[in-house]
Each structure stands twice: as structure tokens, then as C-alpha cells.
């Protein structure tokens, strides 16, 4: 029974890692992570994947955060009876309540993940227009007090790059290793669920 994972591009490598670990009969199909900058695009983009895939897969599971859709993504999934990994965003999928604790500790916390460190130039510099308008850095980041890198599989190179990003943004860096445990638990639960969900 092949499962189709419709995933945010920011979670692709990590979801594939979990699929491989359990040997699941599953494919992953990406939806651009950059949509989090244009939240109104997320639900239609996911729905497009659903329509393209539902005939070919016994089960579909969505791994995309609400990411500012204000509930539109969940409304779309409810129409098809498709489940998704719980969480407003990927930070929560990796770190759970720790995200809220860190925010409560310091409102001005800006988060990184392995993906964001790896793809900083495309998702942040280009995505937020800092490549074209470097003067916007102050507009975007002036209220932030620290960066917390929620690290999944941090190797030396990623940690070094996170330090460089922190230096560029002129913010102190804290690294918290989350691993994949929380995301893995959620995927396990969903994979144990109903056979056909649409």
C-alpha cells in the first residue's frame, strides 16, 4: 500500500530520512517551502497535489504547517478527509512546546532549522528581498534579540554556517538540538492510521 506524503520542501530531507528508517512504501511529493511567504498559496498548492495524486495512492499524508493560512489548509484537508502532521510551522513539528517556551523566554527569538541554514540564501536573502534591498535587513530584524537554531542533524558545516548567519544578522546564536523524534512520532501515528483516507 503506497503512501503519498505531500510535504513542505523545508521538510523533505527529514521526512525521507524517516521513511528510509522504517522502510515504508511511500513517495514524497514536494510543495514549495517558499509559499510560507505567500500563505494564500499554500492550500491551493496542496490541493493541486491532492487532486493529482489521489488516484495513484492508497493514502495521502500532508506534512506542511499552517504557516499563516489561518486555517485554510486544514479546511482544505478536511474536505478530502486527509490528515496532516500537527503544527503551525516546521519549528513546532521539530521542537513542540519548546518553541512557545523559547518565545515566552524571549519574544524576539528568530528560528533556524537545518533547512533554513542550508538554504538561507534562497529562502531568506532572496525570498525576503535582502539580495536586492539589503537596507531592509533592519526593517525585518530590528526587534529580534537572538537566533535559536533548532537543529535536526547538525554537522560541523551547518553549525559554522549558522554562526555566519548570526554574524550577518548581528544576533547571538543558540543551538538547540531537536533531532527528528517529534516529527517521527507524528508520522508513525499517521502511518498507523486508516488505510484509505479519502
Amino acid at each position: 500500500m503506497t503512501t503519498g506524503f505531500i510535504i513542505c520542501g523545508a521538510l523533505g530531507r527529514e521526512v525521507q530520512q524517516i521513511i528510509n528508517r522504517y522502510g515504508w512504501d511511500a513517495d514524497i511529493i514536494g510543495v514549495s517551502a517558499i509559499h510560507h511567504l505567500f500563505p494564500q498559496r499554500i492550500a491551493p498548492a496542496v490541493e493541486k497535489r491532492i487532486l493529482a495524486m489521489k488516484a495513484q495512492y492508497a493514502r495521502l499524508i500532508v506534512v506542511y504547517g499552517d504557516c499563516g493560512t489561518a486555517g485554510a489548509l486544514d479546511e482544505t484537508l478536511a474536505r478530502y478527509g486527509i490528515k496532516r502532521v500537527a503544527g503551525l510551522h516546521c519549528y513546532e513539528m521539530y521542537a513542540g512546546n519548546l518553541v512557545n517556551d523559547l518565545m515566552a523566554e524571549e519574544l524576539g527569538t528568530w528560528f533556524l532549522t537545518d533547512f533554513l541554514v542550508r538554504k538561507f540564501e534562497g529562502t531568506i536573502l532572496k525570498g525576503m528581498g535582502l539580495d536586492r534591498f539589503p537596507e531592509l535587513k533592519a526593517d525585518y530584524f530590528r526587534h529580534y534579540k537572538r537566533i535559536v537554531y533548532l537543529a535536526q542533524n547538525p554537522d560541523e558545516a551547518l553549525q559554522q554556517k549558522a554562526q555566519e548567519i548570526a554574524a550577518f544578522l548581528e544576533l547571538p546564536l543558540e543551538i538547540r538540538r531537536t533531532g527528528l523524534d517529534l516529527l517521527e512520532q507524528q508520522l508513525l501515528t499517521l502511518m498507523e492510521g486508516s488505510v484509505r483516507n479519502f
Binding site: L37, F38, M128, G129, L130, R132, F133, E135, L136, D139
Partner: peptide
Amino acid sequence: LFVPEVLMAAK
């Protein structure tokens, strides 16, 4: 136009 361009126009 997207947010960065609008921010620049706003500035």
C-alpha cells in the same frame, strides 16, 4: 509586487 518592493516604496 511583493513585500520587499512594497516596503521599499513605503520607505
